[in-house]
């Protein structure tokens, strides 16, 4: 196992997340994409902590834990917003929520 293995996995996850965010026409799917991205980040933190620092230093893992907390908060707020949008527009398709359209 080398660092690059993890990095490659992380990159693939990240790309898939980006792909989901860009292409899916459902807000919850987009949220899933975001979760993938966050996971790839956390994986990166953990991997760099494991390979680039002395074994005693685990601050990378702690940052990853913070990331998980943030992801939880983000998911809560995101779903609340989705509910509000659904009430307002009757839909959660992002291309239909275009009040800012010029």
């Amino acid at each position: 196992m080398t660092l690059q293995h993890y990095l490659v996995i992380s990159a693939i996850l990240f790309t898939l997340g980006i792909f989901a965010v860009l292409t899916r026409r459902n807000a919850i799917s987009i949220l899933m994409g975001i979760e993938l991205i966050l996971n790839s980040c956390n994986l990166n933190f953990a991997a760099f902590s494991r390979f680039m620092t002395p074994p005693e230093d685990i601050s990378g893992q702690i940052i990853a834990i913070f990331g998980i907390v943030l992801a939880a908060a983000e998911a809560a707020v995101f779903l609340a917003i989705i509910l509000a949008i659904y009430r307002e527009f009757g839909s959660i398709r992002p291309n239909e929520v275009d009040t800012l359209k010029g």
Binding site: L22, T23, N95, V97, D98, L100, G102
Partner: peptide, 14 residues
């Protein structure tokens, strides 16, 4: 020019 402002966040992100 107006179409740049689609209002769709995915476009912006793209």
């Amino acid at each position: 020019v107006r179409r740049i402002q689609t209002g769709a966040i995915q476009t912006y992100l793209f």
